[in-house]
Amino acid sequence: MLLVNSVKQFVTRRLPDALHRLGSPRLFFETSGRWLPWLLALSVGLLLLGAIWALLFAPADYQQGHSVRIMYIHVPAAILAQSGYLMMAVAATVFLVWRIKLADIAMQSAAALGISITFLALVTGAIWGKPTWGTWWVWDARLTSTLVLFFLYIGMIALRAAMAHRAGVGRACAVLALVGLVNLPIIKYSVDWWYTLHQPASFSLSRAPTMPLEMWLPLLVMVLAYYLFFFTAWIMRIRQLILVREKDTDWVRQWLASL
């Protein structure tokens, strides 16, 4: 009973309080401002390190040759395309439940960032496909579900653009994000299933059966670098939108005057 009560208190009181405190645009802006230079340096540094490793030191594939080096930028992009949608949906949930403005801004920024990463995954996938399959596009399971994910992002951005000057725009987008989230695993599994139905046992991008350690490590570095980059660019977008939305508040005026 005591446990139930304390859990209840946490969910109804403590968690919202903490979220509202952390969700204050001003607090976020000031805290992230201190972290941003470090994050930026770290993510760009890690990206460079991963790129040099992948281009110069990673081994060529015995089947694909050097074109396997595209994997190190394609696979992290495909992973981030999905994680980005997940993060956007988390922001959407927070916004729907607790009405925290910062979550709406985070959702909007994640959509803009996510669609560009998804586009990147599609383009690098196509470029990788040319030397590997001989065509720019193959209806491969991963590419197809990334394409559908791209459409889902387009829906988010189109809805926000269409409702731009309405009060409910944030919540409408949040509902759409959650509907998309429920569907994402169903889409993924159905596309995978559809692919095995039509083209059984053929070569698929980034599903090398045994990848040696010397390929795993740079890939891991790249995935990490992409995540850090995503957070950095996300924070930058959020900060810029906070300034625009809060431009008439005292603290933004003070900040501007202090520059």
């Binding site: 074109s67 595209i70 990147l120 383009v123 690098t124 990788w128 040319k130």
Partner: peptide, 23 residues
């Protein structure tokens, strides 16, 4: 890169461009 340089460099170039754009 054994004739595959065009693809590899194009992919890296576009990635570089898009990531830079996001900053």
């Amino acid at each position: 890169m054994d004739g595959q340089g065009l693809y590899v460099w194009a992919a890296y170039g576009i990635t570089c461009l898009l990531l830079a754009m996001n900053l």
